[in-house]
Design a protein around this nucleic acid. Structure first.
Length: 427
RNA sequence: GGAGGGGUGGCUGAGCGGUCGAAAGCACUGGUCUUGAAAACCAGCGAGGGUAACGCCUCCCAGGGUUCGAAUCCCUGCCCCUCCA
C-alpha cells in the first residue's frame, strides 16, 4: 500500500511513476473519495467531541449529586445522528482502502521503462554456456523414461503437475537440502518452518489479495484459507503487526515450502514440462531491513541466490525487470535466469525484490527507529534461493552426457550418497 | 465431543459503567552521582488519524448490541490455556 499522505500531496507525480509500470491511476476517483472522506470524518469527529464532553459533564454533575435529567435530554438525538455518520464514514473508508489496495508499488527510478520481459535489462552474465557434441535434450525428453512422469501426474491430479521417481526425485530433494544448508551456514539465514495453509490477512499483507485472488488455491471448506503460493507470504507475515527492536535488524529467514498456484490466465503458456506447475518447491529468502539498508540488502540477497547457481556451476544472467514486468508489490526486481540448453534460452529461476515499505504498511510491520524513538515501517525483501524444480531441470539439461546419463554437480554428491552420475533410464 | 479460564501498552500485569489511554513492575531514553561502568535516585516514555500548529478523534482480540457515557455489561466470532471423554 502506498502512503496516503504521498497521494494527497503529490498525486500527479505518483500517477506518472505508476505509468512506468503501465498502471493508470484514476486521479479523479481518488480526489472525490478523499474529499468525501475528509468531510465526513470532520463531521463525525466534531459530533463525537460533542458527545464526549456532554457525557463527561453528566458524569460530573451526577458525582456532585445534581439533577442530570435536563443534561441527558440535551444529548437526546445525538446517538442516532452519530451512528448514521459513523456508518457513512465506515463506508467511505472501506471504499478508499479497497481503492488503495489495488494500487501497485511505485517503481524505483532506476527501473527501466518497458511493457514486458523483452524490455528487461541484462546487467550481468556468469558462467560459460555448455557446448555439446550432440543435440541436447530438454528435461521432458531426458526424463521420459519415467524419472519425470507428467502423464502419471495427470492421472492422479491433472495437468501442470509432475511425478518424479528414483534418482531424479532424490536429486530434487538433494537440491533443497543443499540450498537450505548453504543459506544457513554461509549466508547467515535462520531456517524457519511454517504452515502451508494461510489465512486471508496474511495474503493481504504481502499483496496477493485482494487483487490476485484468482491465482490462489482457496480451501472452500475452511473460511478465509489458502494454500501457500510462496514462502514469502508466511515468513514476511511473521512480522505483521509488530514493532521490532532496531538491533534485531536485518532479519534473514530462509524457508522451504511447496508453492501452489492456479496459474490462471497462463493457459497455453509453458505447458511443456516443469517450467510452470500448480505445485512446486521453492527455497525462499526473506529479509526484514531497516529502511536505509534495504538497497544494499537487495544486492546481498541477490548475491546469495547467485551463490547457489555458482556452486552448481550453472550459467545464468541477471536482469532488471522493466516497469511492465514488475510484480505488484515490488519497487525493483532483479531476476536471475538460468541457461536451459534444451530450450536454448535463459529462464527465470529466482526473482529478488525490494518492496520498500509497501508490504510493511499493509501489514503494520515496524521497528523502533533509535534516532526518532518512534515506530517506523521496516522494508521487506525476498527472493528465491532458488526455485527447486527449475533448478532440477537446469541441472538435468546442463549436465546431460548424450547417453542417457547426467553428471551430479560436485556440491550435490554428498547429498546423493556419493553418486557422480545418474542413469535416467534406471527408474 | 463435554466443562471451565483467558485475550489490556515493547514485555509482564492491575483495572468499581463516568475523573481511564489506562495502576504497578520490567525494558527503554535523558539527568544526578562516578575516573568510567554498575547500583541508587530524579524525570520522561503506547499506537494510529487529523492540523501550519494546538485543540481534537480513534484504538484495551474482532464484529455487533445495551447506555447520555463501555477496557468494564450482553451477544456472536477468532485465538490461547486447563480439566474431562
Amino acid at each position: 500500500m502506498l502512503d496516503t499522505r504521498l497521494l494527497r500531496q503529490d498525486l500527479e507525480t505518483v500517477a506518472a511513476r505508476l505509468g512506468i509500470r503501465g498502471f493508470e491511476l484514476d486521479i479523479a476517483a481518488f480526489r472525490a473519495l478523499e474529499a468525501e472522506r475528509a468531510a465526513v470524518q470532520q463531521d463525525t469527529e466534531s459530533l463525537q467531541h460533542e458527545r464526549n464532553t456532554k457525557s463527561k459533564a453528566i458524569g460530573q454533575a451526577k458525582a456532585r449529586g445534581e439533577d442530570i435529567a435536563p443534561l441527558v435530554a440535551e444529548v437526546g438525538g445525538l446517538g442516532d445522528r452519530l451512528q448514521g455518520l459513523r456508518a457513512k464514514l465506515g463506508d467511505v473508508q472501506e471504499q478508499l482502502t479497497a481503492f488503495l489496495q489495488t494500487i501497485p508499488n511505485l517503481p524505483d527510478p532506476s527501473v527501466p521503462a518497458g511493457d514486458d520481459e523483452s524490455d528487461n535489462l541484462e546487467i550481468r552474465t556468469w558462467g560459460k554456456l555448455p557446448a555439446f557434441n550432440f543435440e541436447p535434450l530438454d528435461h521432458v525428453d531426458l526424463g521420459a523414461g519415467g524419472a519425470l512422469d507428467f502423464e502419471a501426474a495427470a492421472k492422479i491430479a491433472g495437468s501442470r503437475y509432475v511425478v518424479m521417481r528414483g534418482q531424479v526425485a532424490r536429486l530434487h530433494r538433494a537440491l533443497t537440502q543443499f540450498m537450505l544448508d548453504t543459506h544457513v551456514s554461509e549466508h547467515g539465514y535462520t531456517e524457519v518452518y511454517v504452515p502451508y495453509i494461510l489465512n486471508a490477512a496474511a495474503l493481504l499483507g504481502t499483496g496477493q489479495l485482494p487483487k490476485f485472488a484468482h491465482d490462489q488455491f482457496r480451501i472452500a471448506e475452511i473460511a478465509e484459507s489458502y494454500l501457500v503460493p510462496t514462502a514469502e507470504v508466511p515468513v514476511t507475515n511473521l512480522y505483521r503487526e509488530s514493532i521490532l527492536d532496531a538491533d534485531v535488524l536485518p532479519i534473514r529467514n530462509v524457508c522451504h515450502t511447496p508453492c501452489f498456484r492456479r496459474e490462471a490466465g497462463t493457459y497455453g503458456k509453458d505447458t511443456r514440462g516443469m517450467i510452470r506447475q500448480h505445485q512446486f518447491e521453492k527455497v525462499e529468502l526473506v529479509q526484514i531491513s531497516a529502511p536505509e539498508a534495504s538497497w544494499t540488502a537487495l544486492d546481498e540477497l541477490t548475491g546469495h541466490a547467485e551463490a547457489v547457481l555458482k556452486k552448481l556451476e550453472l550459467p545464468y544472467r541477471a536482469v532488471v525487470l522493466c516497469g511492465g514486468d514488475l510484480g505488484f508489490a515490488s519497487a525493483k526486481t532483479i531476476d536471475l535466469e538460468v541457461w536451459l540448453p534444451g530450450q536454448q534460452r535463459y529462464r527465470e529461476i529466482s526473482s529478488c525484490s525490494n518492496f520498500l515499505d509497501f508490504q510493511a504498511r499493509r501489514m503494520m510491520a515496524r521497528y523502533r527507529n533509535p534516532d526518532s524513538g518512534r515506530p517506523e515501517y521496516v522494508h521487506t525483501l525476498n527472493g528465491s534461493g532458488l526455485a527447486v524444480g527449475r533448478t532440477l531441470i537446469a541441472v538435468m539439461e546442463n549436465y546431460q552426457d548424450g547417453e542417457g546419463r547426467i553428471a551430479v554437480p560436485d556440491v550435490l554428491r554428498g547429498y546423493m550418497n556419493g553418486a557422480t552420475s545418474l542413469d535416467l533410464s534406471a527408474v
